[in-house]
Every structure is written in structure tokens, then in C-alpha cells.
Amino acid sequence: MAEQANDTLKVSKHNAEHYMWGDNCDGWHLVKGQDLSVIFERMPANTAEVRHYHERSRQFFFVLCGQAVLEVEGVRYEIGVQEGVEVPPGAKHQMKNESSADVEFLVISQPTTRGDRIHTK
């Protein structure tokens, strides 16, 4: 007989810790560890995060739906569905939604970005 799966290990935006950021943007912590962070984020139309960098954290932004723009060190990357961009530690970057629809994406950070975010001008 097959064993029943333990649903306590399953995570989704419906049972993950939720927070709001920026201009009415949403985030859900899918994995919230010191060595690894995976966040599901939603940005409404015409919103942007604050330009910043991380001294230690390496990040990967992966679009699930919509169209995003990720500016990294002055280079503009248009990211469509099932596309992503890696941001190394120290690289100044800013995620933007310049479209008229929501964009949903994953942000994977190693290690976590908590305490490692420096805003730039």
C-alpha cells in the first residue's frame, strides 16, 4: 500500500507568509531560510521597486505571467513568461512592471536578502 503524502510540506501562495511592499505589490515567502529564499511576487501595472543592490545575495528573477523589465547595472532586460535573469552580488538593479497588466514572478536569493539590501539613488 502506498503511503499518504504529508501535506504539511506543500507550500503555495495560499498558505505561505504574505507581505505587501512598494506600491500595492504582494510577496509570499515560499522558502524563508538564511541560506535560501524563494518568494512569489505580484506587481500591479506601472509599478517599480526601489533601485538597490545586495552585498552577499545572488538573485534569480523568473517571470511566471506577464511582462517585466529588470534593469541591471544600466542594462535593460525585458523578461517574458518562462524567462529569467540572474543578478550577481553587488549589481545595482530594479524590477519594473511597465505594462498595463499584473506581472507575477519568482525571486530566488542565495543567501537570503534580509539585512543585505542597500538602496541607491
Rank of each mutant, 00 (worst) to 15 (best):
V31Y: 04
I39D: 04
G66C: 08
F62H: 05
I79P: 10
A101Q: 03
L9W: 15
S12A: 03
T47S: 04
C65N: 15
I118N: 11
V72H: 07
E17Y: 10
V87E: 00
C65M: 09
C65K: 15
V87T: 09
P89Q: 10
E3R: 14
Q110Y: 11
D102P: 05
V81C: 05
R117K: 09
Y53W: 06
K96P: 00
R114F: 10
M1D: 12
E86K: 04
T120S: 12
T113Q: 02
H52P: 02
L9C: 08
R51K: 14
M43A: 14
W28I: 00
V85R: 11
V38R: 01
G27K: 07
N24A: 15
V63H: 06
K10W: 03
G33I: 04
V75I: 08
G115D: 11
D26C: 09
V50F: 10
P88A: 15
D102N: 14
L30D: 04
H18Q: 08
L106D: 00
L9D: 03
R76A: 14
Q94I: 10
E78H: 09
K121I: 07
D102L: 10
N24T: 05
A101I: 09
H93T: 05
T47V: 01
G90Q: 12
L64P: 03
I108N: 07
N46G: 11
V69I: 07
A68I: 05
K13I: 14
S57M: 09
F60G: 01
A91D: 02
E104S: 05
E73D: 14
E71W: 11
L30P: 06
V69Q: 01
V50D: 07
L9V: 10
K92C: 15
V75G: 00
V38I: 13
Q67M: 15
R114L: 12
D35G: 03
S37D: 06
S100V: 09
E73I: 00
D35I: 01
E41D: 06
Q59V: 03
D116I: 08
H52D: 04
V50N: 11
A91G: 05
V11C: 06
H29V: 06
I118T: 14
M95K: 04
F105Q: 03
Q59P: 00
E49M: 13
Q34I: 07
A101Y: 02
S109A: 14
H119M: 06
K10I: 03
E86T: 13
A91V: 07
Y19Q: 10
L36H: 09
Q94E: 07
L70H: 08
L9I: 10
V63L: 11
F40P: 01
Q4C: 02
V63S: 07
A2P: 15
R117A: 04
G33C: 06
A2I: 15
A101K: 01
M43D: 07
N97V: 02
Y19G: 09
F60K: 04
F40G: 00
H29A: 08
Q94D: 04
H54K: 02
R42F: 00
R58M: 10
R51L: 02
K32N: 14
Q34E: 15
K10E: 05
S109F: 01
A5P: 05
T47W: 04
L106P: 01
K13P: 10
L70A: 07
L30Y: 04
H29Q: 12
A2R: 11
A68G: 15
A101H: 01
E41M: 08
D116K: 06
P111N: 09
N46W: 13
M43W: 12
A2W: 13
A5F: 15
